[in-house]
């Protein structure tokens, strides 16, 4: 009986959260399959009477009439995937090592360093982008995915270091001490004890680093120029003309751009759960 009541309460709480997340998402999807004429109607057509999948067709199997953005969308999607996953892998590996050191090891200036690392993230990218552009052209990296990977690391690394710090900090020190008494050195403790327990944190951090890189717009806009390096947000921005905004195309781009991260999170969901049990067993 008590269990049922509890479940009922939980469901009552889950509903508003789900609504809060999905109402705008539903509107996003509706916009992507409505004609503008229908999108503009009052009272609103919550369910399009004449749904059209033309926007999706234009992007997924572009014909002659599709716009340039739609035609190149798939290539930019690939660029985004390449950049975001490279950034994630590098930031996670290097970031978790640095984070562990900053949280658990004792050495001079570590707190200053922790804040200093974030400091680079405090300057608006608006001010950094011109020097970075000059750097890119000087080294022939302009319009290459590599320059995006490099520049994204400047914010992805501090981000990863700080997030991992949060998770490392929640792991009881006793656990580590026990391992060290068993004869593990620092590095072994990190790889055998800390990282496995932090799996949920690692995965969450990875997901967020990925999403931040996936969403980045300004650097990508300035540092790329053709489809050989353009990323999804830049491509989507091109649905805006001088006056015309192709809202349907843009919303479709948004829906399609959201799919890869969601799939990724579904894949990694398992690891979050197994990390949980691993931690429970050891704890």
């Amino acid at each position: 009986m008590k269990k049922t009541m509890r479940t009922l309460w939980q469901v009552l709480l889950v509903i508003p959260v789900v609504l809060f997340i999905y109402l705008p998402v539903a509107w996003l999807v509706i916009s992507s399959i409505s004609t503008r004429s229908e999108l503009l109607s009052t009272p609103i057509h919550w369910i399009p009477q004449q749904p059209t999948f033309q926007n999706y067709i234009n992007i997924l199997v572009p014909g002659q009439d599709a716009s340039e953005v739609a035609k190149t969308f798939r290539i930019t999607l690939w660029n985004s995937l390449l950049v975001a996953s490279s950034v994630t892998v590098i930031a996670l590996t290097l970031g978790s090592l640095a984070s562990y050191a900053l949280v658990r090891l004792r050495f001079p200036f570590r707190q200053t360093m922790l804040i200093g690392i974030l400091g680079t993230r405090m300057i608006p990218e608006i001010s950094l982008v011109i020097p970075l552009y000059l750097f890119a052209t000087r080294f022939g990296l302009f319009n290459s995915p590599l320059i995006l990977i490099i520049t994204y690391l400047s914010f992805a690394l501090p981000f990863a270091i700080w997030l991992m710090a949060a998770f490392f900090n929640t792991i009881p020190v006793e656990l580590e001490d026990a391992a060290r008494i068993d004869g593990c050195n620092r590095i072994e403790t990190l790889f055998r004890i800390i990282l496995p327990i932090s799996a949920p944190g690692l995965v969450s951090t990875g997901l967020f680093v990925f999403l931040t890189a996936w969403d980045e717009f300004f650097f990508a806009l300035i540092l790329t120029s053709t489809v050989s390096a353009k990323t999804v947000p830049v491509a989507i921005a091109e649905f805006t003309g001088r006056y015309v905004v192709d809202v349907g195309g843009m919303m479709t781009g948004g829906v399609l751009a959201a799919i890869p991260p969601v799939i990724l999170s579904l894949i990694f969901q398992r690891y979050i759960v197994s990390g949980l049990t691993a931690g429970a067993v050891k704890g």
Partner: peptide
């Protein structure tokens, strides 16, 4: 030839003139 959105055009031009 390359194309950007109108919103990005001014910033693209001014940045590219720096090199």
């Amino acid at each position: 030839i390359e194309y950007v959105s109108y919103d990005a055009l001014h910033d693209k031009i001014t940045t590219s003139m720096a090199s």
